[in-house]
Write a protein that binds this DNA or RNA. Structure first.
Length: 671
DNA sequence: AGCACGCCGACT
DNA sequence: GTCGGCGTGCTC
């Protein structure tokens, strides 16, 4: 071995040392290091040795440095598999985070926790058996599987979009694919949105894969999490199931990555690095030569476009594998007509009639309203001023206990007696929230037992579990809530779902608002009617003609996707063009303005040097300009080629950092 | 991130 | 004269 030197990345979160350093490899470590090995190195004048990771081995040393020696291999650290390291570098470049932040993401647990006696799983064997396998596959499932198997023998890898209606048996297809990989001696990763990682799911998977499945979820302790990753690294586990972070399971011979409910927003990490698990999964699959399967009944438009353009192979499951469940019957109510006819209540006549029917039959109702609190804002009837948060550029939400709260920063104050700007005592609440909806529902249906589930109800005690259980047990007739209630939970006795104001989502100032609206409505529709009871679904709206509402009512995904893609094309939004958003934030507004202008200049210069010029918008103030006393400005860059955006961003950032001292935070996100 | 180096104010 | 403030700059 003539590789006498190693490039090491240090485990220090600071941009000034966020680059590799070259060290000599001492005699006794020769041949023992591979990319990803955790090592102890001397650094600067630091008294203690620093932890670092070998990034690459090299034969020649760079000149101009007095090289120092690696002290030794850091024990009790899981070495990073080489490809995972490559993945970290890729994430560093694509999401604008520091290398060591990317590393921390890729190796979620670095430190071994003292080995504790293993908890014997509370998993009772046998009970979940009936819920799974041994069922005959449908013809469609067979076809999908043989398609996947054929591709596997032709050449490893490939990406697939499994577009399957609810109840078409996607999960069974996943299970068979995972078993196939096991037979081939390869490992598989199954990603699920956190909300789907329920006790039942976990038990089902353990039934199916026994000791070979490693499951991670948010309630796991750090030590247990570490153990699961360690089992994957040592080959004790061959299947990793979990949320986004399960993507980084250190499997040596990964053969398959499945992302279930791929449209789910939970696949975007909201902390640094702001990665999209679907993109990272595609990259990891590419590096490992593994197959990638994205599954959904309502795919994201990005994935749909890729599938229709042949980048992903489209696999369809159009028929329900389970007989009985019928899609809910939808009614769209135009709220403008209600007002015209003199109905000033929040319940349209159609909705209140349908609620009455359910109540008389002893069936349950869910009402969805995407705004918590009592009233959206409090404003003065004399001068028109609304009460605003002193730290953010938003109005304060009125809560039923008389408090005024900021939903951005958590600021709280009591409702004043008089208007702070003119002294008038006439303050009135506008815009209804869930708390007021509970009140109004109680007035409208005095006999009904009502429960509320939103972020406020969830806070504290058991995270809303008792509310859900109470409702499931039939101890209430109507459940009122925010989007929390439409995700995941199934209540067999719910036969009516009402969306109080479908438009709130549409008016959100984002290019994805129609897609979000469609997804929420589709999920809400899915809550109505199970098995033998036909469900009904009522959408109240001021824009009944909108394609998101029309296609959600018709439960026609493809119609929605076509309309949405046409809109994205016309407006030049993703996935037609890639869009990089750059957010600059600072407490000092003047410094921010200066920094934003400087960044824009750096972008201009970087653009001039690049082969192709992206479209740049901004700097403009963020939709909510100030949050928690930080001012925020945005710059948007759009271009058909992803790499051009990365290249220009990287060059601009370098020039920018050379000129700006600090106090300005910079955030990148591909949207 | 750490730690040293360096160049100006009040102390035994 | 020197002890110590933290601005600036470097670490393979």
């Amino acid at each position: 071995m003539s590789e006498r030197y190693a490039d090491v990345i240090l485990n220090i979160s600071h941009e000034s040392v966020d680059r590799p350093f070259t060290y000599m490899i001492p005699e006794d470590l020769c041949g023992k290091l591979t990319p990803g090995t955790a090592v102890q190195v001397p650094f600067g004048n630091a008294k203690e040795a620093k932890l670092g990771y070998v990034l690459a081995l090299r034969k020649e040393a760079p000149t101009g440095f007095q090289l120092r020696e690696i002290l030794g291999i850091a024990e009790k650290k899981v070495g990073v598999e080489e490809r995972l390291l490559t993945l970290a570098v890729w994430m560093h470049e694509h999401y604008g985070c520091m290398l060591n932040q990317a590393l921390k993401t890729v190796l979620p647990v670095k430190e071994a926790v003292k080995a504790r006696p293993r908890k014997t799983g509370a998993t009772g064997r046998g009970e979940a058996k009936d819920a799974l396998l041994s069922r005959e596959l449908t013809a469609e499932q067979q076809a999908v599987l043989s398609e996947l198997r054929r591709a596997e023998t032709e050449k490893a890898g490939g990406s697939y979009l499994l577009f399957g209606v609810t109840g078409s048996g996607k999960t069974e297809v996943y299970m068979r694919c995972i078993e196939e990989q096991r037979r081939l001696g390869k490992q598989a990763i199954l990603l699920l949105p956190e909300i789907n990682l329920t006790f039942q799911t976990v038990r089902y998977l353990e039934e199916r894969f026994g000791e070979e499945v490693a499951i991670i979820h948010s309630k796991l302790s750090k030590g247990e999490r570490y153990r699961q990753f360690h089992r994957a690294a040592r080959g004790e586990a061959t299947v990793m199931v979990g949320p986004r972070s399960a993507l980084f399971a250190p499997f040596p011979n990964l053969g398959l990555i499945i992302i279930d409910e791929e449209h789910d927003g939970a696949y975007r990490n909201d902390a640094v690095p702001r990665y999209d698990a679907r993109e990272v999964a595609a990259k990891r699959a590419e590096l490992a030569g593994a197959q990638l399967i994205l599954g959904s009944a309502t795919p994201s438009v990005e994935s749909w476009q890729r599938a229709t353009q042949g980048e992903y192979r489209l696999l369809r499951l159009t028929k329900r594998a389970v007989s009985g469940a019928v899609p809910a019957e939808a009614t769209v109510v135009d709220l403008r007509d209600e007002l015209r006819e003199g109905n000033r209540s929040v319940f349209s006549r159609a909705l209140s009639e349908k609620i009455m029917v359910r109540l008389s039959r002893g069936e349950q109702v869910m009402l969805f309203m995407n705004r918590r609190g009592y009233a959206r804002f409090l404003s003065c009837r004399s001068c028109g001023e609304a009460l605003r948060c002193p730290h953010c550029d938003v109005t304060l939400t009125l809560h039923e206990d008389g408090s005024l709260r900021c939903h951005y920063c958590g600021y709280r104050t009591v409702k004043p007696e008089r208007c702070p700007s003119c002294g008038s005592p006439y303050l009135a609440g506008f815009g209804m929230g869930t708390q007021q909806l509970v009140e109004q529902t109680g007035r409208m249906f005095p006999a009904a037992r009502i429960l509320r589930l939103d972020a406020d109800a969830v806070r504290g005690k058991d995270g809303g579990q008792s509310i859900l259980e109470k409702f499931r047990a039939g101890k209430a007739d109507i459940l009122i809530g925010t989007q929390m209630i439409v995700k995941g939970h199934d209540f067999p006795n719910v036969t009516l779902v009402g969306v109080m104001a479908a438009d709130t989502e549409l008016y959100a100032n984002r290019y994805t608002s129609a897609e979000r609206c469609f997804q929420l409505l589709t999920q809400a529709a899915g809550r109505a009617g199970r098995a033998n009871k036909r469900g009904e679904f009522v959408i109240q709206t001021y824009r009944p003609e909108h394609y998101a509402i029309q296609s959600a009512a018709a439960q026609d995904y493809e119609r929605f996707a076509a309309a949405e893609l046409a809109y994205r094309r016309a407006a030049g939004y993703p996935p037609v063009l890639h869009m990089l958003t750059i957010q600059l934030a600072a407490k000092d507004e003047t410094a921010l303005t200066r920094a934003a202008a400087l960044f824009a200049d750096c972008l201009k210069i970087a653009t001039a040097l690049a082969a192709e010029a992206p479209q740049c918008i901004g700097p403009v103030n963020a939709g909510v300009y100030r949050v928690q006393d930080y001012f925020r400005k945005m710059i948007y860059m759009k271009h058909a080629c992803y790499d051009i955006l990365i290249q220009i961003k990287t060059a601009a950032e370098e020039a920018f950092r050379a000129q700006i001292p600090g106090g300005i935070s910079l955030l990148y996100e591909f949207v």
